[in-house]
């Protein structure tokens, strides 16, 4: 299972894909995204990190937003993947899978051919 803390530089590189993964399950709001990521071993994602990322996804046309009335509290801004966003998520997820498999195979090799200088 998760072995926190993951190196922060790994998380930074993967955060955008992880956020799109949460949104691929359906529209949701910022704190719920943050809580889902924390439950899945990504540690605490602060609002100061999450919302600028969501803003960049929105600027890129991968996400749309909508304010919805809250239940007993202030309204919440929901984020939804667009068709382009879903396609981008699937593309990046497949790429990540290949990269992870390649990296695991490389790291697991006991014999590595090295080029002689």
């Amino acid at each position: 299972m998760s072995t926190l803390p993951w190196p922060s530089e790994w998380l930074r590189g993967l955060l955008s894909l992880a956020v799109m993964r949460v949104l691929a399950a359906g529209p949701t709001y910022g704190y719920a995204i943050s809580a889902t990521l924390e439950d899945n071993g990504f540690g605490t994602i602060k609002g100061g990190t999450l919302y600028p990322l969501l803003g960049r996804l929105e600027s890129a046309g991968l996400v749309t937003t909508q304010w919805r009335a809250g239940e007993g509290g202030p309204g919440r801004k929901y984020f939804r993947l667009t068709e382009d966003g879903m396609a981008e998520f699937e593309r990046q997820a497949a790429l990540w899978g290949e990269f992870a498999a390649h990296t695991s195979a490389f790291l697991g090799n006991t014999i590595i051919e090295t080029k002689e200088s």
Binding site: K46, G47, Y51
Partner: peptide
């Protein structure tokens, strides 16, 4: 409104959740 909503859900202060207001605004 986004900051207020997030802080209402998380129970954090704006400074705890979003850090320095100028840096967050610039980001």
């Amino acid at each position: 409104a986004q900051v207020e909503s997030h802080c209402s859900d998380s129970g954090e202060s704006p400074a705890a959740a979003f850090g320095d207001p100028r840096a967050y605004a610039d980001s």
